[in-house]
Design a protein around this nucleic acid. Sequence first.
RNA 1: GCGCCCGUAGCUCAGCGGAUAGAGCAUCGGUCUUCGGAACCGAGGGUCGGGGGUUCGAAUCCCUCCGGGCGCGCCA
Length: 557
Amino acid sequence: MAGVRDELEALLTEAVRRAQEGGVVPPVAAPPPQLERPQRPEHGDYASSLALRLARAAGRGANPQALARAIVDHLPAHPAVGAVEIAGPGFINVRLAEPWLASQVDAIIAAGERFGDQDLGRGRRVQVEFVSANPTGPIHVGNGRGAVFGSTIAAVLRAAGYRVETEYYVNDGGSQIALFTATLYAHYQRLCGREAEPPAEGYAGEYMRELAARIHAEQGAQLLAPPGASPPDEIGLRGVRTLVDQIRSDLAELRVRYDSWYSERSLYAPEGRYEQAMRLLHERGYVTEREGATWLASTQLGEDKDNVLVRRDGSPTYFAADIAYHYDKFLVRGFDTVVDIWGADHQGHVSRMRAAVDALGVDPERLRVLIYQLVTLKRGQEVVRLSKRAGDIITLREVLDEVGADACRFFFLSRSMDSQMDFDLELAKRQSNENPVYYVQYAHARIAGILRTAAERGATPDRGDVQLLRHPAELALVREMLTLPELVERVTQTLEPHLLPHYAMELATAFHAFYTECRVVSEDAALSSARLRLTLAARIALARVLGLMGMSAPERM
RNA sequence: GCGCCCGUAGCUCAGCGGAUAGAGCAUCGGUCUUCGGAACCGAGGGUCGGGGGUUCGAAUCCCUCCGGGCGCGCCA
């Protein structure tokens, strides 16, 4: 099912064309119809300021109201269109036809689980990479926010007809891993009875001691290197492997799963992506040598400064690795679009990464980097500090154990990425009407309850005539359901998943209002069947939004 | 100092250049002998941080100031 709005916009565009052919509208380039949903019901279901914008394009003397009249007069007929009015300075207000609205209930039931699907992607391939936190410790609430955004965006893009792959980039190389290995090895040596001091700037958490103990329990002292020798890679590898497993299971708890996990180390294989990417940059003339280091000449691409690719000591920077990684995404695996989701602390990395992609000869428009602002954890009024010091870390796992995946996802989703958010543990776990999470899920459970009751009483949605649905609350519910395809389209374009929880609330409200106004199962068998069909459709729509958000749709609560 | 983000109701937040700026919670007042009351209806509550500008029209775009967050590494 395509969205109604798209169809109406096409009608308006056609109307302008016809009116221009007829000479009643000046032959200027017509602005897009841009139908919006008016705040006030008397302005109809959809409104367009097309005539106002057209008047501006047509220049002085053009009368918006007259243009609106001309457009409306040339509007092709369509079963969805009820009344069309011209209002105010020249708005065109469209009211949907009630028989058509009612008929959409059957269309939604026919679409079933696929209701809301669009064909915007036309099979194009998109990669969504998110979280990708260093495997040097457990992931925290901030990472959880990225995980929820990423997995939800992936779900929406899938619904929009893209071939989506989700990926976690495992930073298992580089200087942070060296530091991690050194810290872990120090603990390990102590367990083996050797004196050792963890690096002063090393990883301080208690989990490091536990990791060392685990490795010691499994391997005894056999990983010990000669005194004074550098920490063995094996120690770091084992630590990383364990932490990646933990990260994987913590994220699974949040209902986040990945299609693939990509190792940074693998970039450095002989003749691997790193070498290939660097060679390409050389060939394209974007590499310079200076002060003993190798630089990407990003100033040639409009950046404020150049960036180091290879340090004076010969080791590649994180930036260089990331370039090789994106070389693989675009030039080897051939994704049409890549979405990277990073925390606000990576803001500075955005523009140089875009420049690097440009340097690789890839249109930077194909890289969409989303930055989300950081999370403040609260317990009621009290701010829970997220210091990196040991003991102060609140892990994602702890939050999940406390509030559950559904509430966690809903809370993270309801704020836009651009706003710093407070995550109130107390509010999130409160199972009451103060909590919007349950408001939405309750609507679904309530529907399931009604359908159970109906079955017990022998009422059935089969052969119900949806044209009996005439009550304002019934039609309001249908209107609300019909905006789901539009929502999928909008989130696909804007990549702003916070629109989903807001829509879910409105849909639930429309259902609760219908339930209060209209008795579903009654003595009137025909009406009961029709309303059961509406109820069934509402369940489909609610389950779909909940599904897109990665939330459960409970039969009972 | 420079860059990015934010500032909207008591609180947490929506608001796609358009019509009288919305929701949830909180507060106050109502609804229900029947399908799930974790519900429904209503009320109060706003200098959209301040000031300029563009526009027929600005919470939205531009400039500037104030306040807050995050960056500005041969860290990741």
